[in-house]
Amino acid sequence: MSFFTFAWDWVTQAANWHGPGSIPHQVLAHLGYSGLSLLVAALIAIPLGIAIGHTGRGAVFVVNLANAWRAIPTLGLLILLAVLLGFSFVTWLVPLVVLAIPPILVNTYEGVAGVDRGVKDAALGAGMTGWQQVTRVEVPIAMPLILVGLRTAAIFMVATATIAAYIGLGGLGRYIVDGLASDQYGPVAGGALLVIILAVAVLALFAGLSRLIIPAGLRRQGRSE
């Protein structure tokens, strides 16, 4: 049997849709963990990225962070904090936030810092204050990249929250970790499929969001990771 038949058989069992630990329950929990981490990370990383991009101060730090953050093994960081801090709210929130910050920070910085020099000069020359330059020109123009950063972080959070089940977090990762522990491939495959669907749904959500948020004048321009 293939992955999909295993996964589908398990997902469609009526018993998995009711009671505590049911699929709807774990999907919500998974979204909750990912969403909360993303929100906290965004509240830290977006203002910081804008400030660094606008002033140019701290740019070296951000550029190096961009290279370093992929090297951090998520599983190791989660486990280390769990062992050091115990299993608590902080244990899973801190590493998730820490891991979500770099892509948002780096993309926000690049978006703001990368605004065309002529455009920045024109904004200044038109008599905009620093705040007006940021809010009316730099952030709207950086919006495609800020959204890319948020999207990357959101997808990353869905994946990381799955792994966090290993240190006791709820969510869809529970099915995978518990199934692996008891050698049952059904829930493992089912959990994996749901995680994949969730990740792709987040991707689609951001695709829709960018259509809504990105100004039409910028939409033609290419976007990159």
Binding site: V158, G173, I176, Y185, A189, I196, V200, L203
Partner: peptide, 19 residues
């Protein structure tokens, strides 16, 4: 590429187990 890259690594490992 975008869609495949969105798949969490653990889920992809699991999906490849039968094969």
């Amino acid at each position: 590429v975008n869609v495949i890259y969105a798949i969490p690594s653990l889920a992809l490992f699991i999906a490849l187990i039968p094969a």
